[in-house]
């Protein structure tokens, strides 16, 4: 009997939870705020679903109810992606060591 592909996806999911568990425990507490903003940005990879939805209209009508929701989702996810990564970058740039090599 063949294995349902769902089982493979479930395996990836469960293993990723464990990877996440160990990776996140090793994040230093002082970077917990950047952790939240970067997880925010990467969870917006949901934009791939939004793009498929947005492109689901046919050539005569780009906008139908379904693709319209897709376009809205694209805009929301894009706010998060750009906003999330850039604000993380801005925060991380501020973390500095004691000024030894300056001057």
């Amino acid at each position: 009997m063949e294995i349902d592909p769902l089982i493979f996806r479930l395996s990836i999911f469960i293993l990723s939870i464990f990877v996440g568990y160990y990776v996140v425990w090793s994040v230093t507490p002082s970077l917990h705020t950047p952790l939240m903003s970067v997880t925010n940005a990467i969870s917006s990879v949901i934009i791939v679903g939004a793009i498929i939805a947005g492109l689901s209209g046919n050539s005569e009508s780009v906008f139908n109810t379904s693709s319209f929701f897709g376009f809205l989702a694209i805009a929301l996810a894009a706010i998060n992606i750009f906003g999330g990564f850039l604000v993380t970058q801005r925060m991380l740039a501020m973390y500095k060591k004691k000024k030894k090599d300056k001057h």
């Binding site: 769902l6 999911f13 996440g20 568990y21 952790l35 990467i42 990879v45």
Partner: peptide
């Protein structure tokens, strides 16, 4: 991610889900 059968979304969802839970 499961609906779309998309690995990137499944992995990310699991990472973010466990990250938030640990925090």
């Amino acid at each position: 991610g499961f609906t779309l059968e998309n690995t990137a979304l499944i992995i990310t969802g699991a990472l973010v889900g466990s990250s938030g839970a640990i925090l």
